[in-house]
Nucleic acid binder design. Structure first.
Lengths: 202, 202
DNA sequence: GTCTATACAACGATAGAC
DNA sequence: GTCTATCGTTGTATAGAC
């Protein structure tokens, strides 16, 4: 019995340290981008050696996955917590869009890694595959809710619409990153109105 | 006068060699991806030393730009050459989509670099900025043509529609790369029909 | 102009000492 | 569990031969 059965658990310090490093890594990735966020740079800002980092995350890729998952947990919490049952699809998407336009660096990180992870051999392939499925499910259920409330026509296929709406969302974000003069909210709202024609209760 | 004024020009050999290397680099990039396409690997397949490559392209980034521009020239030629004046927007987009689904590796390359190049400091930023502008202009003019022919309602704003249609195109391609079971043509056609409601002549 | 040889710096990964 | 030392790979810069 080398570890003491204290109340907080044996590895409390390590967990807190890991969480702290995660935040530092996220901030650097958002500000300086993927390429300039080297292990040395992250380690230096966190006050540990390069090998100290690898002790916690195994590899650079492991660190990146941890960052993505941590940020994703926040996103899901924000999406679930703030979404009201009666909220319209357009409003929900506008909130998502606002969240991404608030941090261009993070949006760029996700977009770039998603494109890379398209390769089945990429370390983040499973992550993004699952993530896209999850987001589409949320959109699909939202469309169904709109139809149940009579705000969207019954002729719309929620499954098909989820692919199209997510595509517009991603595509507009990319074009906005390339030229921030684009009004993504306006463009998104108009596209959703076209893709989800009003039902009898609208 | 050290250079001889021959018919083919003084640098015919170098130009041909450069073109040959470009093709080899493109093939490797499409097959093995950005990360595994190192200068050494490309040089070896081209039968030159690493420095032989750099003589022609200056740097790895210079080579990538050259590859992008060469491929882009082909794309434009294909788009312009095959497009008939009376061709519908949906058909034109379907051709573009078919071209990308024929070479997933190249599509992945473009998508990844476009996401990276979103950073104003990225070496390919100007390239993708111009490219997106050009593609949107083509789409916008296509929409205007459809309106002139009476196939698309006059209430549609061609400029706004060009952003949305390009977004759907990019977004669906990304989702297809992540899971090729997606029928991008079907999904694209449905989205375009929604975004471009039929006019009186349809 | 075309191309090779050598050297260098930065990154990530690994092994082993404390 | 943390650090020191070391290695392989990649991209880049310089000098110079043909």
């Amino acid at each position: 019995m080398t570890s003491s059965p204290v109340a907080r658990g044996p590895y409390a310090k390590g967990v807190a340290r890991k969480r702290e490093i995660l935040g530092i890594a996220l901030a650097l990735l958002a500000n300086d981008g993927l390429r300039r966020s080297t292990l040395d740079e992250i380690a230096q800002r966190a006050g540990v050696s390069r090998q100290g980092l690898l002790h916690y995350f195994g590899s650079r890729e492991g660190l990146l996955i941890a960052v993505l998952e941590a940020r994703d947990a926040d996103d899901i919490a924000a999406a679930a917590g703030a979404s009201r049952p009666a909220e319209s699809m357009a409003d929900a998407l506008e909130r998502m869009l606002l969240r991404t336009t608030e941090s261009p660096g993070l949006t760029r990180l996700y977009t770039t890694l998603a494109a890379e992870a398209t390769d089945p051999d990429h370390f983040a392939h499973a992550f993004f595959r699952d993530r896209y499925r999850r987001v589409r499910t949320m959109i699909r259920d939202g469309v169904r809710g709109e139809q149940a409330a009579g705000r969207v026509d019954e002729s719309v296929d929620p499954e098909a619409a989820s692919y199209q709406i997510l595509a517009v969302l991603d595509g507009l974000q990319l074009q906005w990153l390339l030229d921030p003069r684009l009004d993504t909210r306006l463009s998104m709202r108009a596209a959703v109105e076209a893709l989800l024609p009003a039902g009898p209760g609208a």
